[in-house]
Design a protein around this nucleic acid. Structure first.
Lengths: 217, 217
DNA sequence: GTCTATAGATTGATAGAC
DNA sequence: GTCTATCAATCTATAGAC
């Protein structure tokens, strides 16, 4: 592993990674040439090879880094929300309309998913799978809390349900990306409530709601 | 057999399309060279340009064709199933483990989605969006029937719910593709039941509390 | 660690014969 | 409509100076 000791080296690395994320988000992995990445980072291709060894080396590094960017943004918004519906809506909005800083990374995720799933990239695929599992586990922790509060009654192990929830959000985001008019927040929240078996509260079309009985099981 | 010349042309077109779908499924759109496609079709690149004008022309044609292949396979399985759970499971299996004939097309769908979402391919994106909408509408018709039978109580317009259901299946399939061990059929069916507000079984719907089939937390 | 310069291979696309 | 032959552009990666 290369050990950048100088400040300039560290900055070069960061610049290259950032430039790569942006260009890949726009043109895809094969469409992002090494020269184009280096130019945007105000460096040269030689510098890129010095830092990452190869183009694939840079992609893998990028793949590991994107984890924090995307997940962290979502967790902050979830914590800020108070009601269940607000939390679910916050999750959705983080997928559908992520903050500008995370926008490129969301698009990058799609590019890297198809890339990692192609033959020859099994290493990256395994790495990406691990990363996903970590994020599922994070949400599972939150679901556990919500279940303890009596807000939801997950129809299975929280790990499994969390995996389903995140996968659902990914699929919805894809459809939304293709044509935003086909997905509305209300429908998404209703779907998530259904998956989580949310109890009463402000369900869009659900019937009556007495109120949340805490100690009931 | 009339018009042997035309027949050859028709076969060439079909061969090129089939070869392209296979190679793109494996190597992606940019990774599938015109020469490689032509070679697999036992033709030459000149033939490809004679038929489709350009590589992008072929992709668009492929995009339109894939519609029937994927959706048709699923509808057949749904009709064959009798109970709601069987239908939902059949839908999932068509995404997770499609029949060999459709396997390449599912992978192609992912490749074409990221490609169409990149700047410069807005035409293809609009075309793909239309195609998706058609498929959503098809499922919406089925959901209408199920609702009439009292099997489900969709929490919104069937068009919206159908869109959410298909999107959910797409997202689940992506996670499954990355690591099959993270998704099990039981969880998927439970999620779909939740989204559709399925009646009977473990969920009395209109009532307040859904009966928790699992142990408590 | 980063630069310049360039090698070596591959790409999408075209021209013209048949 | 399909083939052969080929071009110009572009790509990843390397070599060597500093």
């Amino acid at each position: 592993m290369p050990r950048p000791r100088q400040a300039r080296s560290v900055e070069t690395r960061a610049r290259l990674l950032s430039a790569a994320a942006t260009i890949i988000a726009e043109h895809g992995i094969e469409g992002a040439s090494v020269d184009a990445i280096a130019e945007r980072a105000e460096r040269t291709s030689g510098s890129l090879y010095g830092q990452f060894g190869s183009k694939d080396g840079l992609i893998v590094e990028l793949l590991d880094q994107s984890k924090d960017v995307v997940a962290q943004s979502m967790l902050v918004d979830i914590e800020a929300a108070t009601t269940l519906d607000e939390r679910l809506a916050a999750m959705w909005r983080n997928f559908a309309e992520p903050p500008p800083a995370a926008r490129d990374w969301v698009r990058f995720e799609h590019e890297v998913w198809v890339w990692a799933n192609r033959p020859g990239n099994e290493d990256a695929k395994a790495r990406l799978a691990t990363r996903y599992r970590d994020e599922f586990a994070t949400l599972a922790g939150a679901l556990d809390d919500w279940a303890a509060e009596g807000l939801i009654a997950p129809p299975g192990p929280v790990d499994r349900v969390a995996t389903v929830v995140v996968s659902t959000l990914i699929g919805l985001e894809m459809t939304y990306r293709l044509d935003p008019s086909t997905i509305d927040e209300r429908s998404v929240v209703a779907a998530l409530r259904g998956i989580l078996r949310a109890r009463d509260g402000a369900a869009p079309l659900a019937g009556t709601a007495t109120r949340s009985a805490t100690g009931e099981t």
